[in-house]
Design a protein around this nucleic acid. Sequence first.
DNA 1: AACGCTTCTTGACACCGGTCAAACAAGTGA
DNA 2: TCACTTGTTTGACCGGTGTCAAGAAGCGTT
Lengths: 224, 224
Amino acid sequence: MNTLQLTSTDRATLMRSRFFARLPQSTFEDVLNSASVSACEERDVLFRQDEDVDDVFFVLSGLVRLCRMGKDGREADVALFSEGEMLAETAMFLRQRATASAVAAKKSVIARLNGGKLQHLAATDHEVAQALIEHLCYRGKMTEDLLAEDRLLTATQRVANFILSHCPKDSTSFRLPFQKNILAGKLGLAPEALSRAFSTLRQSGVTVRGRLIEIHDRHALERF
Amino acid sequence: MNTLQLTSTDRATLMRSRFFARLPQSTFEDVLNSASVSACEERDVLFRQDEDVDDVFFVLSGLVRLCRMGKDGREADVALFSEGEMLAETAMFLRQRATASAVAAKKSVIARLNGGKLQHLAATDHEVAQALIEHLCYRGKMTEDLLAEDRLLTATQRVANFILSHCPKDSTSFRLPFQKNILAGKLGLAPEALSRAFSTLRQSGVTVRGRLIEIHDRHALERF
DNA sequence: AACGCTTCTTGACACCGGTCAAACAAGTGA
DNA sequence: TCACTTGTTTGACCGGTGTCAAGAAGCGTT
Protein backbone atom coordinates (compact mmCIF):
# COMPACT_ATOMS: atom_id res chain seq x y z
CA MET A 1 0.00 0.00 0.00
CA ASN A 2 2.22 2.78 -1.30
CA THR A 3 1.40 6.43 -0.94
CA LEU A 4 0.84 8.24 -4.21
CA GLN A 5 0.21 11.72 -5.53
CA LEU A 6 -3.24 12.63 -6.77
CA THR A 7 -3.06 12.72 -10.55
CA SER A 8 -5.26 14.82 -12.77
CA THR A 9 -7.20 11.78 -13.94
CA ASP A 10 -7.82 11.00 -10.29
CA ARG A 11 -9.25 14.48 -9.85
CA ALA A 12 -11.41 13.93 -12.88
CA THR A 13 -12.68 10.64 -11.46
CA LEU A 14 -13.57 12.34 -8.21
CA MET A 15 -15.39 15.18 -9.90
CA ARG A 16 -17.42 12.80 -12.03
CA SER A 17 -18.56 10.80 -9.01
CA ARG A 18 -22.09 10.90 -7.63
CA PHE A 19 -20.90 12.52 -4.44
CA PHE A 20 -18.44 15.15 -5.58
CA ALA A 21 -20.10 16.13 -8.83
CA ARG A 22 -22.54 18.46 -7.12
CA LEU A 23 -20.10 20.19 -4.80
CA PRO A 24 -18.64 23.61 -5.64
CA GLN A 25 -14.97 23.70 -6.60
CA SER A 26 -13.83 25.27 -3.36
CA THR A 27 -15.46 22.63 -1.18
CA PHE A 28 -14.00 20.00 -3.41
CA GLU A 29 -10.49 21.37 -2.90
CA ASP A 30 -11.16 21.64 0.79
CA VAL A 31 -11.92 17.93 1.05
CA LEU A 32 -8.96 17.01 -1.11
CA ASN A 33 -6.55 18.84 1.15
CA SER A 34 -7.17 16.29 3.85
CA ALA A 35 -6.93 13.31 1.51
CA SER A 36 -4.20 10.79 0.91
CA VAL A 37 -3.88 8.37 -1.97
CA SER A 38 -2.49 4.87 -1.93
CA ALA A 39 -1.95 2.00 -4.35
CA CYS A 40 -3.31 -1.37 -3.28
CA GLU A 41 -2.60 -4.84 -4.48
CA GLU A 42 -5.32 -7.44 -4.67
CA ARG A 43 -6.26 -8.64 -1.18
CA ASP A 44 -4.87 -5.57 0.55
CA VAL A 45 -7.12 -4.69 3.46
CA LEU A 46 -8.44 -1.15 3.79
CA PHE A 47 -10.03 -1.86 7.14
CA ARG A 48 -11.15 -4.88 9.04
CA GLN A 49 -14.46 -5.76 10.63
CA ASP A 50 -14.70 -4.58 14.27
CA GLU A 51 -11.93 -2.04 13.82
CA ASP A 52 -12.46 1.65 14.40
CA VAL A 53 -12.62 3.44 11.08
CA ASP A 54 -12.26 7.20 10.95
CA ASP A 55 -11.67 7.74 7.27
CA VAL A 56 -13.88 7.59 4.25
CA PHE A 57 -12.58 5.71 1.24
CA PHE A 58 -12.94 6.48 -2.40
CA VAL A 59 -12.09 4.13 -5.25
CA LEU A 60 -10.07 6.02 -7.85
CA SER A 61 -9.50 2.88 -9.87
CA GLY A 62 -9.86 -0.82 -9.31
CA LEU A 63 -12.37 -2.61 -7.14
CA VAL A 64 -13.14 -3.00 -3.44
CA ARG A 65 -15.11 -5.78 -1.81
CA LEU A 66 -17.00 -5.15 1.43
CA CYS A 67 -17.44 -8.42 3.26
CA ARG A 68 -18.62 -9.73 6.57
CA MET A 69 -17.37 -12.87 8.20
CA GLY A 70 -19.47 -15.36 10.08
CA LYS A 71 -18.22 -17.06 13.20
CA ASP A 72 -17.42 -20.25 11.31
CA GLY A 73 -14.92 -18.46 9.05
CA ARG A 74 -17.11 -18.23 5.98
CA GLU A 75 -17.52 -14.77 4.56
CA ALA A 76 -20.21 -12.99 2.56
CA ASP A 77 -19.87 -9.91 0.39
CA VAL A 78 -22.36 -7.19 1.17
CA ALA A 79 -21.23 -4.65 -1.44
CA LEU A 80 -18.80 -4.15 -4.27
CA PHE A 81 -17.36 -0.75 -5.13
CA SER A 82 -15.78 0.13 -8.42
CA GLU A 83 -14.16 3.24 -9.82
CA GLY A 84 -15.82 6.44 -8.65
CA GLU A 85 -17.56 4.98 -5.61
CA MET A 86 -17.27 5.90 -1.97
CA LEU A 87 -17.38 3.62 1.05
CA ALA A 88 -17.30 3.57 4.86
CA GLU A 89 -19.27 6.77 5.21
CA THR A 90 -21.55 5.28 7.84
CA ALA A 91 -18.69 4.76 10.27
CA MET A 92 -18.52 8.55 10.58
CA PHE A 93 -22.05 8.99 11.83
CA LEU A 94 -22.88 5.84 13.71
CA ARG A 95 -20.40 5.76 16.52
CA GLN A 96 -19.45 2.13 16.25
CA ARG A 97 -16.91 -0.31 14.88
CA ALA A 98 -16.86 -1.32 11.25
CA THR A 99 -19.48 -3.97 10.53
CA ALA A 100 -17.52 -5.37 7.60
CA SER A 101 -14.04 -5.60 6.15
CA ALA A 102 -12.98 -3.78 3.00
CA VAL A 103 -10.57 -5.64 0.74
CA ALA A 104 -9.18 -4.72 -2.66
CA ALA A 105 -10.54 -7.16 -5.23
CA LYS A 106 -7.81 -6.25 -7.67
CA LYS A 107 -4.98 -3.75 -8.07
CA SER A 108 -6.58 -0.47 -7.02
CA VAL A 109 -5.90 3.14 -6.24
CA ILE A 110 -7.73 4.38 -3.20
CA ALA A 111 -8.19 7.87 -1.82
CA ARG A 112 -8.62 8.17 1.90
CA LEU A 113 -10.57 11.23 2.99
CA ASN A 114 -10.44 12.57 6.49
CA GLY A 115 -13.64 11.50 8.21
CA GLY A 116 -13.66 14.23 10.83
CA LYS A 117 -13.19 16.85 8.16
CA LEU A 118 -15.99 15.45 6.07
CA GLN A 119 -18.26 15.16 9.06
CA HIS A 120 -17.59 18.76 9.97
CA LEU A 121 -18.33 19.83 6.42
CA ALA A 122 -21.54 17.84 6.40
CA ALA A 123 -22.61 19.64 9.56
CA THR A 124 -21.87 23.12 8.23
CA ASP A 125 -22.20 23.00 4.46
CA HIS A 126 -25.65 22.39 3.01
CA GLU A 127 -24.31 21.13 -0.28
CA VAL A 128 -22.16 18.51 1.39
CA ALA A 129 -25.01 17.37 3.59
CA GLN A 130 -27.28 17.15 0.59
CA ALA A 131 -24.77 15.18 -1.42
CA LEU A 132 -24.27 12.84 1.49
CA ILE A 133 -27.99 12.30 1.89
CA GLU A 134 -28.38 11.41 -1.75
CA HIS A 135 -25.40 9.13 -1.60
CA LEU A 136 -26.81 7.31 1.41
CA CYS A 137 -30.21 6.93 -0.23
CA TYR A 138 -28.53 5.47 -3.26
CA ARG A 139 -26.45 3.05 -1.21
CA GLY A 140 -29.47 2.01 0.82
CA LYS A 141 -31.35 1.20 -2.33
CA MET A 142 -28.44 -0.83 -3.67
CA THR A 143 -28.36 -2.99 -0.57
CA GLU A 144 -32.12 -3.37 -0.58
CA ASP A 145 -31.94 -4.45 -4.22
CA LEU A 146 -29.41 -7.11 -3.31
CA LEU A 147 -31.53 -8.35 -0.44
CA ALA A 148 -34.64 -8.54 -2.59
CA GLU A 149 -32.77 -10.35 -5.37
CA ASP A 150 -31.44 -12.88 -2.90
CA ARG A 151 -34.89 -13.55 -1.55
CA LEU A 152 -36.85 -13.56 -4.79
CA LEU A 153 -34.60 -14.97 -7.46
CA THR A 154 -32.73 -18.18 -8.08
CA ALA A 155 -29.04 -18.19 -8.95
CA THR A 156 -29.75 -18.41 -12.66
CA GLN A 157 -32.22 -15.55 -12.54
CA ARG A 158 -29.77 -13.34 -10.69
CA VAL A 159 -27.10 -14.05 -13.25
CA ALA A 160 -29.53 -13.37 -16.10
CA ASN A 161 -30.39 -10.07 -14.43
CA PHE A 162 -26.77 -9.14 -14.10
CA ILE A 163 -26.09 -9.87 -17.75
CA LEU A 164 -29.09 -7.86 -18.90
CA SER A 165 -28.18 -4.88 -16.78
CA HIS A 166 -24.54 -4.89 -17.86
CA CYS A 167 -24.87 -5.50 -21.56
CA PRO A 168 -25.37 -2.19 -23.39
CA LYS A 169 -28.87 -2.02 -24.90
CA ASP A 170 -27.49 -1.57 -28.40
CA SER A 171 -24.93 -4.34 -28.18
CA THR A 172 -25.01 -8.11 -28.20
CA SER A 173 -21.95 -8.72 -26.07
CA PHE A 174 -19.81 -7.28 -23.28
CA ARG A 175 -16.83 -8.10 -21.10
CA LEU A 176 -17.26 -8.92 -17.41
CA PRO A 177 -15.76 -6.02 -15.46
CA PHE A 178 -14.11 -8.43 -12.99
CA GLN A 179 -13.29 -12.05 -12.28
CA LYS A 180 -16.11 -14.58 -12.04
CA ASN A 181 -14.92 -15.20 -8.54
CA ILE A 182 -15.88 -11.68 -7.56
CA LEU A 183 -19.14 -11.77 -9.47
CA ALA A 184 -20.11 -14.91 -7.61
CA GLY A 185 -19.46 -13.14 -4.31
CA LYS A 186 -21.49 -10.11 -5.32
CA LEU A 187 -24.43 -12.30 -6.29
CA GLY A 188 -24.18 -14.28 -3.07
CA LEU A 189 -23.15 -17.49 -4.82
CA ALA A 190 -20.40 -20.03 -4.61
CA PRO A 191 -18.21 -19.85 -7.75
CA GLU A 192 -19.44 -23.29 -8.75
CA ALA A 193 -23.04 -22.10 -8.67
CA LEU A 194 -22.18 -19.17 -10.93
CA SER A 195 -20.53 -21.53 -13.36
CA ARG A 196 -23.59 -23.74 -13.41
CA ALA A 197 -25.88 -20.75 -13.90
CA PHE A 198 -23.87 -19.76 -16.95
CA SER A 199 -24.12 -23.21 -18.38
CA THR A 200 -27.89 -23.24 -17.80
CA LEU A 201 -28.16 -19.94 -19.64
CA ARG A 202 -26.33 -21.43 -22.60
CA GLN A 203 -29.66 -23.02 -23.54
CA SER A 204 -31.11 -19.51 -23.75
CA GLY A 205 -28.49 -18.27 -26.16
CA VAL A 206 -25.78 -17.00 -23.83
CA THR A 207 -22.19 -17.70 -24.80
CA VAL A 208 -19.41 -17.35 -22.24
CA ARG A 209 -15.79 -17.40 -23.36
CA GLY A 210 -13.47 -16.20 -20.61
CA ARG A 211 -14.81 -12.82 -19.60
CA LEU A 212 -16.62 -12.24 -22.86
CA ILE A 213 -20.39 -12.67 -22.64
CA GLU A 214 -22.52 -12.85 -25.77
CA ILE A 215 -26.29 -12.66 -25.80
CA HIS A 216 -28.18 -14.03 -28.76
CA ASP A 217 -31.69 -13.62 -27.42
CA ARG A 218 -32.43 -10.83 -24.94
CA HIS A 219 -36.05 -11.88 -24.51
CA ALA A 220 -35.12 -15.40 -23.53
CA LEU A 221 -33.08 -13.90 -20.70
CA GLU A 222 -35.86 -11.61 -19.57
CA ARG A 223 -38.30 -14.47 -19.43
CA PHE A 224 -36.10 -16.40 -17.01
CA MET B 1 -57.79 4.41 6.70
CA ASN B 2 -59.50 7.05 8.80
CA THR B 3 -58.02 10.44 9.46
CA LEU B 4 -57.23 11.11 13.11
CA GLN B 5 -56.02 13.87 15.36
CA LEU B 6 -52.49 13.74 16.68
CA THR B 7 -52.74 12.76 20.34
CA SER B 8 -50.27 13.70 23.00
CA THR B 9 -48.94 10.16 23.20
CA ASP B 10 -48.37 10.36 19.45
CA ARG B 11 -46.33 13.49 19.99
CA ALA B 12 -44.37 11.72 22.67
CA THR B 13 -43.69 8.82 20.34
CA LEU B 14 -42.41 11.18 17.68
CA MET B 15 -40.16 13.03 20.07
CA ARG B 16 -38.65 9.82 21.37
CA SER B 17 -37.81 8.61 17.86
CA ARG B 18 -34.30 8.47 16.46
CA PHE B 19 -35.09 11.14 13.90
CA PHE B 20 -37.08 13.71 15.83
CA ALA B 21 -35.35 13.40 19.17
CA ARG B 22 -32.49 15.64 18.14
CA LEU B 23 -34.53 18.40 16.50
CA PRO B 24 -35.36 21.61 18.33
CA GLN B 25 -38.98 22.10 19.38
CA SER B 26 -39.73 24.72 16.74
CA THR B 27 -38.55 22.55 13.85
CA PHE B 28 -40.52 19.70 15.28
CA GLU B 29 -43.71 21.79 15.29
CA ASP B 30 -42.92 22.96 11.81
CA VAL B 31 -42.82 19.41 10.47
CA LEU B 32 -45.96 18.46 12.34
CA ASN B 33 -47.94 21.27 10.79
CA SER B 34 -47.72 19.53 7.45
CA ALA B 35 -48.55 16.10 8.85
CA SER B 36 -51.70 14.05 8.77
CA VAL B 37 -52.52 11.00 10.85
CA SER B 38 -54.51 7.97 9.84
CA ALA B 39 -55.63 4.69 11.36
CA CYS B 40 -54.87 1.59 9.32
CA GLU B 41 -56.24 -1.90 9.48
CA GLU B 42 -54.03 -4.89 8.84
CA ARG B 43 -53.25 -5.21 5.14
CA ASP B 44 -53.99 -1.57 4.39
CA VAL B 45 -51.56 -0.32 1.80
CA LEU B 46 -49.61 2.88 2.45
CA PHE B 47 -48.10 2.86 -1.00
CA ARG B 48 -47.48 0.37 -3.72
CA GLN B 49 -44.35 -0.60 -5.59
CA ASP B 50 -43.82 1.52 -8.75
CA GLU B 51 -46.09 4.29 -7.51
CA ASP B 52 -44.89 7.82 -7.02
CA VAL B 53 -44.48 8.52 -3.33
CA ASP B 54 -44.18 12.08 -2.11
CA ASP B 55 -44.73 11.64 1.57
CA VAL B 56 -42.68 10.24 4.36
CA PHE B 57 -44.36 7.84 6.75
CA PHE B 58 -43.97 7.47 10.45
CA VAL B 59 -45.30 4.59 12.52
CA LEU B 60 -47.00 6.00 15.62
CA SER B 61 -48.17 2.56 16.67
CA GLY B 62 -48.46 -0.82 15.05
CA LEU B 63 -46.27 -2.34 12.39
CA VAL B 64 -45.51 -1.79 8.72
CA ARG B 65 -44.03 -4.30 6.31
CA LEU B 66 -41.99 -3.12 3.33
CA CYS B 67 -42.09 -5.75 0.63
CA ARG B 68 -41.09 -6.25 -2.96
CA MET B 69 -42.82 -8.52 -5.38
CA GLY B 70 -41.15 -10.70 -7.95
CA LYS B 71 -42.60 -11.17 -11.40
CA ASP B 72 -44.01 -14.59 -10.46
CA GLY B 73 -46.20 -13.08 -7.75
CA ARG B 74 -44.11 -14.15 -4.78
CA GLU B 75 -43.12 -11.39 -2.44
CA ALA B 76 -40.22 -10.75 -0.09
CA ASP B 77 -40.05 -8.42 2.88
CA VAL B 78 -37.08 -6.08 2.85
CA ALA B 79 -37.80 -4.25 6.08
CA LEU B 80 -40.17 -4.14 9.02
CA PHE B 81 -41.00 -0.93 10.85
CA SER B 82 -42.47 -0.75 14.29
CA GLU B 83 -43.53 2.06 16.58
CA GLY B 84 -41.30 5.12 16.33
CA GLU B 85 -39.77 4.29 12.95
CA MET B 86 -39.82 6.26 9.73
CA LEU B 87 -40.03 4.95 6.19
CA ALA B 88 -40.02 6.00 2.54
CA GLU B 89 -37.51 8.77 3.08
CA THR B 90 -35.46 7.71 0.06
CA ALA B 91 -38.28 8.44 -2.34
CA MET B 92 -37.77 12.11 -1.54
CA PHE B 93 -34.19 12.25 -2.71
CA LEU B 94 -33.90 9.69 -5.44
CA ARG B 95 -36.29 10.85 -8.09
CA GLN B 96 -37.89 7.53 -8.85
CA ARG B 97 -40.86 5.31 -8.16
CA ALA B 98 -41.16 3.33 -4.97
CA THR B 99 -39.11 0.16 -5.12
CA ALA B 100 -41.35 -1.65 -2.67
CA SER B 101 -44.85 -1.65 -1.23
CA ALA B 102 -45.64 -0.66 2.34
CA VAL B 103 -48.41 -2.61 4.04
CA ALA B 104 -49.68 -2.47 7.60
CA ALA B 105 -48.85 -5.73 9.31
CA LYS B 106 -51.42 -5.09 12.01
CA LYS B 107 -53.76 -2.35 13.19
CA SER B 108 -51.58 0.76 13.07
CA VAL B 109 -51.57 4.50 13.37
CA ILE B 110 -49.47 6.21 10.75
CA ALA B 111 -48.36 9.80 10.42
CA ARG B 112 -47.79 11.07 6.93
CA LEU B 113 -45.30 13.90 6.72
CA ASN B 114 -45.09 16.19 3.75
CA GLY B 115 -42.09 15.11 1.70
CA GLY B 116 -41.49 18.42 0.00
CA LYS B 117 -41.58 20.21 3.32
CA LEU B 118 -39.12 17.77 4.82
CA GLN B 119 -36.87 17.96 1.83
CA HIS B 120 -36.86 21.71 2.02
CA LEU B 121 -36.05 21.57 5.70
CA ALA B 122 -33.23 19.12 5.05
CA ALA B 123 -31.79 21.53 2.53
CA THR B 124 -31.91 24.54 4.81
CA ASP B 125 -31.72 23.29 8.38
CA HIS B 126 -28.47 21.70 9.51
CA GLU B 127 -30.10 19.80 12.32
CA VAL B 128 -32.65 18.20 10.03
CA ALA B 129 -29.98 17.26 7.50
CA GLN B 130 -27.86 15.79 10.25
CA ALA B 131 -30.75 13.80 11.69
CA LEU B 132 -31.57 12.51 8.25
CA ILE B 133 -27.99 11.46 7.60
CA GLU B 134 -27.89 9.50 10.81
CA HIS B 135 -31.21 7.94 10.10
CA LEU B 136 -30.08 6.84 6.65
CA CYS B 137 -26.86 5.40 8.01
CA TYR B 138 -28.84 3.46 10.53
CA ARG B 139 -31.28 2.15 7.95
CA GLY B 140 -28.44 1.20 5.63
CA LYS B 141 -26.82 -0.79 8.36
CA MET B 142 -30.08 -2.57 9.11
CA THR B 143 -30.48 -3.69 5.54
CA GLU B 144 -26.85 -4.73 5.34
CA ASP B 145 -27.32 -6.76 8.51
CA LEU B 146 -30.26 -8.55 6.96
CA LEU B 147 -28.32 -9.27 3.79
CA ALA B 148 -25.35 -10.62 5.71
CA GLU B 149 -27.59 -12.79 7.91
CA ASP B 150 -29.30 -14.22 4.86
CA ARG B 151 -26.00 -15.09 3.29
CA LEU B 152 -24.14 -16.37 6.32
CA LEU B 153 -26.68 -18.07 8.54
CA THR B 154 -29.12 -20.93 8.29
CA ALA B 155 -32.76 -20.51 9.20
CA THR B 156 -32.21 -21.89 12.68
CA GLN B 157 -29.25 -19.60 13.30
CA ARG B 158 -31.23 -16.56 12.21
CA VAL B 159 -34.03 -17.48 14.55
CA ALA B 160 -31.58 -18.08 17.40
CA ASN B 161 -30.10 -14.65 16.69
CA PHE B 162 -33.48 -13.03 16.75
CA ILE B 163 -34.36 -14.63 20.06
CA LEU B 164 -31.07 -13.60 21.63
CA SER B 165 -31.38 -10.03 20.47
CA HIS B 166 -34.98 -9.68 21.61
CA CYS B 167 -34.83 -11.35 24.98
CA PRO B 168 -33.79 -8.84 27.64
CA LYS B 169 -30.34 -9.76 29.05
CA ASP B 170 -31.70 -10.06 32.57
CA SER B 171 -34.70 -12.14 31.65
CA THR B 172 -35.30 -15.71 30.62
CA SER B 173 -38.38 -15.13 28.49
CA PHE B 174 -40.17 -12.61 26.30
CA ARG B 175 -43.19 -12.22 24.06
CA LEU B 176 -42.84 -12.04 20.29
CA PRO B 177 -43.74 -8.48 19.28
CA PHE B 178 -45.75 -9.76 16.29
CA GLN B 179 -47.21 -12.83 14.60
CA LYS B 180 -44.91 -15.66 13.58
CA ASN B 181 -46.11 -15.06 10.09
CA ILE B 182 -44.51 -11.65 10.10
CA LEU B 183 -41.37 -12.84 11.81
CA ALA B 184 -40.93 -15.46 9.12
CA GLY B 185 -41.16 -12.75 6.48
CA LYS B 186 -38.66 -10.55 8.23
CA LEU B 187 -36.19 -13.41 8.45
CA GLY B 188 -36.73 -14.33 4.82
CA LEU B 189 -38.38 -17.65 5.64
CA ALA B 190 -41.58 -19.46 4.84
CA PRO B 191 -43.77 -19.79 7.96
CA GLU B 192 -43.19 -23.55 7.94
CA ALA B 193 -39.45 -23.05 8.04
CA LEU B 194 -39.76 -20.76 11.05
CA SER B 195 -41.87 -23.36 12.79
CA ARG B 196 -39.24 -26.01 12.12
CA ALA B 197 -36.49 -23.76 13.34
CA PHE B 198 -38.33 -23.30 16.61
CA SER B 199 -38.74 -27.01 17.00
CA THR B 200 -35.03 -27.56 16.31
CA LEU B 201 -34.20 -25.01 18.99
CA ARG B 202 -36.32 -26.90 21.47
CA GLN B 203 -33.36 -29.28 21.83
CA SER B 204 -31.32 -26.29 22.96
CA GLY B 205 -33.69 -25.33 25.70
CA VAL B 206 -36.08 -22.99 23.90
CA THR B 207 -39.76 -23.27 24.76
CA VAL B 208 -42.38 -21.72 22.50
CA ARG B 209 -45.97 -21.40 23.68
CA GLY B 210 -47.96 -19.12 21.46
CA ARG B 211 -46.02 -15.89 21.39
CA LEU B 212 -44.19 -16.59 24.61
CA ILE B 213 -40.56 -17.62 24.15
CA GLU B 214 -38.58 -19.06 27.05
CA ILE B 215 -34.82 -19.55 27.00
CA HIS B 216 -33.30 -22.02 29.41
CA ASP B 217 -29.73 -21.89 28.12
CA ARG B 218 -28.46 -18.70 26.52
CA HIS B 219 -25.09 -20.21 25.70
CA ALA B 220 -26.62 -23.08 23.79
CA LEU B 221 -28.28 -20.52 21.55
CA GLU B 222 -25.11 -18.54 21.05
CA ARG B 223 -23.20 -21.64 20.03
CA PHE B 224 -25.69 -22.41 17.26
C1' DA C 1 7.50 -23.86 -25.76
C1' DA C 2 7.24 -25.75 -21.20
C1' DC C 3 6.19 -25.13 -16.56
C1' DG C 4 3.51 -23.84 -12.61
C1' DC C 5 0.03 -21.22 -10.69
C1' DT C 6 -4.49 -19.66 -10.43
C1' DT C 7 -9.13 -19.61 -12.01
C1' DC C 8 -12.90 -22.02 -13.87
C1' DT C 9 -15.77 -26.04 -14.85
C1' DT C 10 -17.98 -30.44 -14.01
C1' DG C 11 -19.67 -34.36 -11.33
C1' DA C 12 -21.32 -36.49 -7.06
C1' DC C 13 -23.58 -35.87 -3.00
C1' DA C 14 -25.83 -33.98 1.04
C1' DC C 15 -28.73 -30.79 3.12
C1' DC C 16 -31.35 -26.79 3.69
C1' DG C 17 -35.52 -24.81 2.88
C1' DG C 18 -39.76 -24.09 -0.33
C1' DT C 19 -44.18 -26.08 -1.44
C1' DC C 20 -48.34 -28.72 -0.91
C1' DA C 21 -51.58 -31.00 1.96
C1' DA C 22 -53.57 -32.13 6.16
C1' DA C 23 -54.11 -31.92 11.02
C1' DC C 24 -54.27 -28.89 14.83
C1' DA C 25 -54.67 -24.59 17.68
C1' DA C 26 -56.12 -20.01 18.52
C1' DG C 27 -58.90 -16.23 17.93
C1' DT C 28 -63.41 -14.03 16.62
C1' DG C 29 -68.12 -13.23 16.35
C1' DA C 30 -72.77 -14.62 16.67
C1' DT D 1 -70.80 -22.12 23.58
C1' DC D 2 -70.39 -23.28 18.91
C1' DA D 3 -69.12 -22.40 14.29
C1' DC D 4 -65.97 -20.29 11.38
C1' DT D 5 -61.88 -18.14 10.11
C1' DT D 6 -57.17 -17.56 10.53
C1' DG D 7 -52.73 -18.83 12.10
C1' DT D 8 -49.43 -22.62 13.21
C1' DT D 9 -47.41 -27.15 13.11
C1' DT D 10 -46.08 -31.50 11.02
C1' DG D 11 -45.04 -34.74 7.34
C1' DA D 12 -43.70 -35.85 2.61
C1' DC D 13 -41.40 -34.52 -1.23
C1' DC D 14 -38.25 -32.21 -4.25
C1' DG D 15 -35.57 -28.62 -6.30
C1' DG D 16 -31.72 -25.44 -5.51
C1' DT D 17 -27.30 -24.57 -3.88
C1' DG D 18 -23.15 -25.41 -0.96
C1' DT D 19 -19.23 -28.47 -0.54
C1' DC D 20 -15.61 -31.58 -1.83
C1' DA D 21 -12.77 -33.45 -5.31
C1' DA D 22 -10.91 -33.84 -9.73
C1' DG D 23 -9.99 -32.29 -14.13
C1' DA D 24 -9.62 -28.37 -17.78
C1' DA D 25 -8.48 -24.00 -19.23
C1' DG D 26 -6.22 -19.70 -18.84
C1' DC D 27 -2.21 -16.87 -17.83
C1' DG D 28 2.27 -15.25 -16.56
C1' DT D 29 7.09 -16.53 -16.09
C1' DT D 30 11.07 -18.45 -17.35
